[in-house]
Simulated scan of single mutants.
Amino acid sequence: MLSPQSTEIVRATLPVVGGAIGEITPLFYDKLFADRPELLRDLFNRGNQANGSQRQALAGSIAAFATALVEHPEVRPDAMLARIAHKHASLGIRPEQYPLVQQHLFAAIAEVLGDAVTPEVAAAWDEVYWLMANALIAIEAGLYAAAGAEDGDTRIPCRVVGRLRETAEVATFLVRPLDERPLPAARPGQYVSVQVELPDGARQIRQYSLSGDPDDALQFSVKRDSGDPAGEVSNHLHDHVGVGDVLLVSAPFGDVVLEPGTSPVLLASAGIGCTPMIGMLSHLAAAGDGRKVIAVHADRSESTHAFRADLLQLTAKLPDAVAHIWYEEPEADGHPADRTGFADLSRIDIPAGTTAYLCGPLPFLRTARAQLLAAGVAAADIHYEVFGPDLWLGTAA
């Protein structure tokens, strides 16, 4: 909780700081990487830095946290903090890195805002920063302890023991620890960080959802990324990694996980967002779960739909499950006309008490969430996962 004096200062200066955050965050990263270039080379996603999405996510999280402190001082925004902490833990972020961030962030704030940053303003925002940082450090320490890695390094050298072609653009990798240690515990919906060494020597890290739960391996799936910039790690995995190769893979993390219970479950995805959803569906089928399950997926076409056969087989295996599939460009004759185009959850009968899990691009998430709210699903029962920096932090309450 902010001190009363700092609360008033932050409330008064939040519009100014928030309005300038788009200038502050690029300057912060420039200063940070000039001081520690190895962080850009071996920790931060270079693609997300190039397209600016990581900078937007940082700006959004700081603004959302400060707003929460002044508008709802009695409630800590734990959902936002947990999302960030899980991502940090998957990357191995350590407490000693937080002062470095504070140093360059506040240098950027002072440079952008100039004389507006009085000692009192600086002290108030420093309080905001350390409230957020110390909360994250505490959550991350718990995550590391649970993973048996109090030093913060949960990465395990793993050998690729299987590679499967799901579609022309999606490949599934099965990996097993080199030292034959037991597989780390995972919950359906979580992801792992995978580190590879690229041709220029950079050791870049990316997160991939667990797309199944085989007994003797970790399974994650990767979509080739031909965007601008192209996906360095995803494309490297597609082009250069096969059975027998070794990858550094973290323990599983992620706060969007399938919870046990008896209430109906809706799993909705678009594109490669199917990976955590198929992992959840696999878990439900393996357990013979008897609750009502509604699986929804949207894709470009049948041939681009990864895990299409799995989706149909798993829903058929469950005692009370149904699948609804939309394609923008159906290839098969007889595809229902009312399932052509974008997914429309308003066309589905959603039972009372449903818990929903969503994964896909932001436009899909926003539309699906709005349709679920209109159908009477409680906001607290709608959980989402988004790949890459979470640009929705603080906006989906």
Rank of each mutant, 00 (worst) to 15 (best):
W130Q: 03
G288D: 12
V296Y: 13
A356P: 12
H297A: 07
H383T: 00
V194D: 14
D216S: 10
R300N: 10
I272G: 03
F220C: 10
A79E: 15
A374N: 09
E120W: 03
P389S: 02
S250D: 10
R159G: 00
R291E: 05
D239Y: 06
A396L: 15
P184C: 03
I109G: 00
R203Y: 05
I272S: 14
P177I: 01
V222N: 06
P15K: 03
E180F: 02
T154Y: 06
Y98N: 09
G189N: 12
E71R: 15
G142Y: 13
R165Y: 00
W125P: 01
S209W: 11
Y144R: 11
A332R: 15
L314E: 07
L14D: 03
T340D: 03
H86W: 08
A368L: 07
A57F: 11
N134H: 12
R41K: 13
D299R: 12
P99D: 08
C158T: 01
G212F: 00
A295G: 00
N48F: 08
A370T: 11
L248F: 06
T172R: 13
T355Q: 14
S193Y: 04
F65E: 07
V256S: 10
L113G: 07
H335E: 03
V112K: 07
A171T: 06
L32Y: 07
D333P: 14
L105D: 02
G22D: 14
R11K: 14
W392I: 04
I205L: 12
K87H: 06
M280H: 14
D126Q: 12
R339K: 10
V249W: 00
V170L: 08
M1G: 05
P330I: 08
I294S: 05
S6W: 08
P182A: 09
I84W: 10
A375K: 13
P99F: 11
M1W: 04
S346R: 12
I93S: 04
V17G: 01
P319A: 03
W125E: 06
A380R: 15
L40N: 00
G22K: 13
S53L: 14
M80Q: 13
